[in-house]
Simulated assay, not measured.
Amino acid sequence: MQHSMRSALSTSPGGPDTLKLGSVPRPEPSGSQVRIRVHAVGVNYPDLLIIEDRYQFRPERPFAPGAEVSGVIDALGPDAGGLEVGQKVMAMTGWGGMADYVCVPVSKCSPCPPEIPFDEAASLLMTYGTAYHALKDRARLLPGETLLVLGAAGGVGLAAVELGKAMGARVLAAASSEAKLAAARAAGAEGTVLYPLHSPSREEQKALAAAFKEACAPGGASVVIDPVGGGYAEPALRAIAWEGRYMIVGFPAGIPNLPFNLPLLKNCDIRGVFWGAAIEREPEQHQRSVAELLEFYRAGKIKPRIHARFGLEDAGGAIAALAGRGVTGKVVVTVD
């Protein structure tokens, strides 16, 4: 007898309002997969992109978005080793997480300490994982360096502020409202820059570059974390230090056109951060990073800030909230 489950389904390309709660067959784990009874799902910008057919991957429809989950293993595939039924886990799913159950390869699962609540566990992997990969693996951030974080109250941005502080950097945060800057200061930012909510015009970019330079004085930003893009990128690049590292994380404000003379003049690097692909290529490094993130959590140096929780029946509303740029921290879908 085949069991069914609830799933927030994308049946055609479109925005969050196109998601509909439906009933689909419950998946069975194969090979080295485990099946997770989902308790919480972290909502991330790729969830919006994937239902609009604007992401690197295009799953066959109907599918559920949801790239990171926490829950409890309830079934094992025939070749699944190292994990047990009843074990609490965090997992990267790519998509499919906004459902009662999801099947995931063992390599994408991490045991979850019992003291971490499900909603926080579902908020740890993607944003902190991306930020840590950017800061540790790609930027090689050193203690005492100056870190400028754009979009500093978003999921990746706030994680980068906390992790930059934990790694011994002087952290400066930039965001589009005083409330967001206050959240960044609470997470450890020493200085802040307020920028416009709309992508800045050429004239506004000049003023923003001056504000970034002043905040990053005397030497400029050793590392810039940019999960925003658009018209914010060039002003931040103009504030970079000699031999600084500019980390490209994402483009909710649009893909910027950067003048190539700036990296030449600053002798600096522009580096891409594609954490999802890095997990595929270096699974053992990913597991080491997750273990280090859990140590930061236990030490009280990082703690996901949950902005809002939505039920599975309102998964579209959760993605819409994130897309509205009014979110500080993480949006989570909880699954009863």
Rank of each mutant, 00 (worst) to 15 (best):
G86F: 06
Q87V: 01
I51G: 14
A91V: 02
E60A: 15
S70R: 05
V85K: 15
D79I: 01
D79W: 03
E52F: 02
G82T: 08
V43R: 09
M90D: 10
P59L: 04
G42V: 02
R37F: 00
A91G: 14
P59H: 05
V102R: 13
D79P: 00
A80R: 00
V104A: 12
E52D: 08
I73E: 10
V38I: 04
G71Y: 06
I51D: 03
P65M: 13
V104F: 11
V72G: 04
A99D: 03
D100I: 07
V38M: 01
V106N: 13
D79N: 14
S70G: 03
V41H: 04
E84I: 01
G66N: 08
L76P: 10
E52W: 02
A40G: 02
Q56I: 13
G71L: 06
V104Q: 12
V85A: 14
G94K: 03
D100S: 13
V106I: 14
G71H: 07
S107V: 13
G71V: 06
V106D: 13
A67D: 11
F63G: 09
V104W: 11
M90C: 14
R61Q: 06
W95S: 14
V89M: 06
A75G: 04
W95L: 04
G42Y: 02
P65I: 11
M90S: 12
G96T: 06
M98Y: 11
R54S: 13
P46G: 09
L48M: 12
D100Y: 13
S70K: 07
G42L: 05
I73D: 07
I51W: 01
C103I: 13
C103L: 03
G97W: 05
V89K: 06
L49C: 11
E68C: 00
D47W: 00
N44C: 12
E60W: 01
V89S: 07
Y55S: 10
A91R: 03
G71C: 08
D79Y: 07
A99Q: 07
A40L: 02
D53M: 00
H39V: 01
G96L: 09
V43Q: 07
P46V: 06
E68M: 00
D47M: 00
V85D: 08
T93W: 01
D53W: 01
A64K: 10
G81C: 08
Q56N: 05
C103D: 14
G96F: 06
E68N: 00
Y45W: 14
S107G: 11
A64G: 06
E52I: 03
V43P: 01
G71W: 04
D47K: 03
F57D: 12
M98R: 07
G77L: 08
P46R: 08
V43S: 09
G81R: 14
L83N: 04
D53T: 00
G97C: 09
E52L: 13
M92Q: 14
E68D: 01
V69L: 12
A99W: 09
S70H: 01
P78E: 14
A99C: 11
N44M: 07
V69N: 12
I50F: 08
D53K: 08
A99M: 08
S70W: 05
C103Y: 02
V104M: 11
V104T: 10
G82C: 09
R61V: 05
G42M: 04
P59W: 01
D53H: 10
F57A: 15
D79F: 10
V102E: 10
R61F: 08
V43M: 06
G94Y: 02
